[in-house]
Every structure is written in structure tokens, then in C-alpha cells.
Design a protein around this nucleic acid. Sequence first.
DNA 1: TTATATGCAAATGATTTGCGTAGTC
DNA 2: GACTACGCAAATCATTTGCATATAA
Lengths: 127, 127
Amino acid sequence: MTPQRRVILEELKKVTSHPTADEIYEMVRRRLPHISLGTVYRNLEILSQCGMIQKLEPGGTQKHFDGMAENHYHFRCLGCGCIEDVSLGLLHDLEASVPELDKYEIIGHRLELIGYCPDCKKGRKPS
Amino acid sequence: MTPQRRVILEELKKVTSHPTADEIYEMVRRRLPHISLGTVYRNLEILSQCGMIQKLEPGGTQKHFDGMAENHYHFRCLGCGCIEDVSLGLLHDLEASVPELDKYEIIGHRLELIGYCPDCKKGRKPS
DNA sequence: TTATATGCAAATGATTTGCGTAGTC
DNA sequence: GACTACGCAAATCATTTGCATATAA
């Protein structure tokens, strides 16, 4: 736990927004003017690996597309990055159950199961 | 609906995988050897705007981070891209309800509500 | 001192865009 | 003829990485 890593963690805990790496860099730079953007990226990765923070968009840098337009859910493999359809009935009553959302306009939702696909599961130690 | 757009759509409908833009480019190129990658990107964007296909990772190109490590759900605004926490109880029984997942190792899940935040809702025509 | 992390800058790689041309209504 | 989409190539921009130095165990 280096000073840089500690400050990144503290600044991120301090806010309820969900900043990008760039924004975190700016926040941290007020306390550590010489920190580099690379260090911020490296530590964000480490902290999210440790489970101390969350990276909100997992998966790699490429976007995936789905020919099935109807809403349905997906499974994402942490091992190989593959994405598969999941036969799980849609959750219809989500929005109604959150009163604070009355000022929002909710269009829909996305649900993603995360884990290891059969192939990747085989290659892993039992957890 | 240009020939290129039609072929992109057809190829994407043909597979159950969830290819990246690059992979779709390769698939389409077998039928339209002179198509450009830019055209593929442009049409994927148009098709997903129309709702004819799905872009699986919405939001911009930047990743967001969350200082709260415990699992919880988020709302994402299609207008300004902001992300906010949602006070929605965790869904615990998701995995059990999908028998086909017994060969998988499910670690968890992500749920994201999508729509317009109060500020962006104001600036929009009623839909 | 031995390993790990940092700062800096350059490299990478997915995506976007400008522009001149081709196809369409 | 006006408009839109295309192919191509260059530009963009978030993220990653190589490397020499600094820090920590």
C-alpha cells in the first residue's frame, strides 16, 4: 500500500459519484501533484482486483454486439471474455420497487451474470 | 438500408455468439471484400440506435470506478452518462433459477437500470 | 539488496472522423 | 441534382507499457 495507492483509495471513497480514471487523476493530483496517470491506472486496476473498489465496466476494451434485439440477459466469462445468452425470465417489476426513481425516466435495465464458463472452469483450481 | 448494412445485420443474426466490431468486420468481409471497417462501425451504431441489434456495452469509452466495494446496483443516464447508486435489494436467487448454469461457475452479477436522470428528463420531450 | 512501484513518455489499439467518390431517390 | 452512405486513411483518445529511477521490505 503505497502513498499513491492510499490517496487514490481515499479520494474515491470520499465521493459518491462514479468518476473515470481521468477524473480520479485530477482529484488525486490536488494532493499528489507529481503522480502520473499511469500510476492511477495501475492502482485502480490493483484495487479493483483486490475487491477494494469496483470497476463498473468489466470486460476488455472492445464492445460486443448481439443480433438478438429483444431484451435478454447475458453471462460474461472472466476467464476468456466470452459472452453467452442466459435463459432467465425478464424481471419486470424492478423499477416499481425503487421509490426514489420517480424523478427518473427508466427505459429498461441490463443484467449480466459473471463467472467462469465451462471451459474456463475446468482450467481453474476449485475455489 | 444499404447492401452493406443488410449484410452486417444478416451476419450478426446468423450467429449466437456476441462478436466484436472487428469480428463482424471479418465475417462481413467474406461476402463484401471491399467493405471498410469504418462502415462496419457506422452501421453497427445505426442498427443499435434503431433497436435492430444490441450494443452490449453502452456508455462511452471511459470506464467508471466506484469506491463502494460491496455489491450494489447502478443507474446509468443515457443523456449525460452519469451513474448513480440505486437502493435496490440484491437479487440472491438469480443463479439458482437457471438450471443450464450448472456447468458454469457463477461468481456474481451486475444489474444496471437505464434511462434518464432528473436533469436530462426535464430537457427531453415526453416520450 | 532485492523486489516492487513510480514518473515519464512513447506505444497500443479500438473507435471515430474528414474527405472525395459512388450510389440513391 | 441533392442527399446519404461508402471506402480509405488519418486522427483521436483511453488505456497500457517500457524503462530508468525511487521507494519499501
